[in-house]
């Protein structure tokens, strides 16, 4: 490593051994760095899963049965203001936008009419 550094400072060419060493070491450092980060994210995820499980309420006591007539209708999510015609697309085709909206709806587990998309932008 010392040889690599001394060659680098003076802007010289690396000898073959230093070249191989730097390339392998560099790839190794990237791998090691991201693998440690992966472990940290796994730990973080596990902690949050545990916290979420703790927060979940205990199973409720059995509720006396009610007749259909007395049962309140289930609340229905209010449809969002229409996206059609309002959404702004930046460097995104209609087909891609439709696909993205469908994926978002699927990920969130909500019907499309309850979501409102303001704009979809291509990230460079």
């Amino acid at each position: 490593m010392h040889i690599v550094l001394s060659a680098a400072v003076s802007g010289e060419k690396l000898v073959f051994g230093d070249n191989v060493l730097t390339a392998v070491l560099g790839y190794g450092v990237v791998f090691m760095g991201l693998m440690i980060l992966m472990a940290l994210v796994y730990v973080m995820g596990a902690i949050f899963k545990k916290m979420a499980a703790r927060k979940q309420p205990l199973p409720a006591a059995p509720i006396p049965q009610v007749t259909n007539a007395a049962r309140e209708p289930e609340p229905i999510g209010e449809p969002a203001k229409g996206t059609a015609g309002e959404i702004k697309l930046y460097n995104v085709s209609d087909k891609e936008a439709a696909m993205i909206m469908a994926i978002v709806a699927s990920q969130m587990g909500k019907p499309l009419n309850e979501l409102r998309f303001k704009s979809i932008k291509e990230v460079k």
């Binding site: 990237v30 791998f31 760095g33 991201l34 693998m35 980060l37 992966m38 472990a39 994210v41 796994y42 995820g45």
Partner: peptide
């Protein structure tokens, strides 16, 4: 998080 291995 295993995506990070692919990024590496």
């Amino acid at each position: 998080p295993s995506s990070l291995i692919l990024g590496a």
